[in-house]
Simulated scan of single mutants.
Amino acid sequence: MSNMPCAPQCLQRTLAAAMVVAAAASATCDGARAEYPERQITMIVCFPAGGGTDIAARLINTSLGEALGKPVIVENRGGAGGNIAIAAAARAGGDGYTLLVCSSAYVVNPSLYAHAGYDPYKDFVPVMVIGASPNVFVVPAQSEIKTMPELIARAKAHPGRLNWTSPGAGTTPYLAGEVLKLRTRISMQHIPFAGAGPATTAALAGQVDLYTANIGSLMGAIDAGKLRPIAVTSRERWPDLPDVPSLDELGVKEAISDTFQGVFAPAGTPQAVVDRLAKELTLILNRPDIREKFVKAGLPVVAEGPEVFRARIAREVPRYKAIVDQAGLKIQ
């Protein structure tokens, strides 16, 4: 028998076997990707339960879980104007099993906080803007203040005596309040809370003179007569509050703002996963029953996909930076 090295035919057989193994491995990987998700998905919400961001997450998590075939749970991590949740989601990594649900605080915090702890352009992939609506200024039902002009007049007569609150520093309602102070030259003391839930509780108890928050989180209390709306931050009157004037209508110019609620994925999340999430969320948000629930919650569905959402972020980060810089609101 010959001890000569393997003939060319032997080499060809070896290469063919290697190709079969590689193909099998590729098929296995493709199969693994196709099976996403293989386990539970967590939505980290950047504010406590009861606020607009929490409501938005809970209106979609069950339907998203049904569409994906695995549970999607909501985990609230309030604090630091949303930065605690944002940092937690970023640390979770881009495997598709942790998502962030956050409000416009996402585009505000990098300018407002000296150390927000994330890059709004690089650390997350925008998946979907769920909805957006303006902010509203309200007073407790038992308040003697009936209108925004009355509040402004009282604040001017007693500088620094009135207090006000918001869902927290970094939120667009907080900036709406600061813009109101800036444009009308009034002085009020801001009382910080960790989210819309505890802030709303304080307003209902009459512990603050003025409260500003996203309309979606307050419509229930407004409809029940527990809070009195005195102005909205939309360009025109909001359909659900036809008797409430806009700040622009009252002569407070350059004070238009809204709050969006969006879904983000940590950087590094596979594009196929982002595409799947965007597809399922689009289908869910276009369902009549889901849209009706959002309308009742005061958050009309927007359903802006990844590219449109990315453009919104690019537009709003510098916009709110200009407001923060003008008002001198930097938080160390």
Rank of each mutant, 00 (worst) to 15 (best):
N3P: 03
P8W: 11
C10T: 15
R13S: 08
A17I: 12
A18M: 15
A22M: 06
A22N: 02
A34W: 12
R39Q: 15
R39S: 13
I41D: 08
P48H: 01
A49Q: 13
G51Q: 11
D54R: 01
A57H: 11
T62W: 04
S63V: 02
S63D: 15
E66L: 13
A67T: 00
G69E: 05
G69K: 09
G82F: 05
I86M: 10
R91A: 15
G96E: 00
L99H: 04
V101H: 00
L112I: 09
Y113E: 06
A114R: 13
A116M: 04
G117Y: 14
K122V: 08
V125A: 05
V138K: 01
V139Q: 05
A141N: 05
M148S: 06
G170K: 09
G177R: 08
E178D: 00
V179S: 02
P192M: 12
T200L: 14
A203H: 06
A203G: 10
V208D: 07
D209R: 01
A213Q: 12
A221C: 04
A224I: 01
G225D: 02
L227K: 01
I230R: 00
S234W: 13
D240H: 06
D248F: 04
L250S: 03
E254F: 14
F260T: 09
G262M: 14
G262F: 05
T269H: 08
Q271F: 04
A272H: 14
V274P: 02
L283T: 13
P288K: 01
I290L: 03
G298E: 03
A303R: 03
E304Y: 07
E304R: 08
E307Y: 04
E307C: 02
R312P: 05
V317P: 05
P318Y: 09
K321T: 08
I323A: 13
Q326T: 15
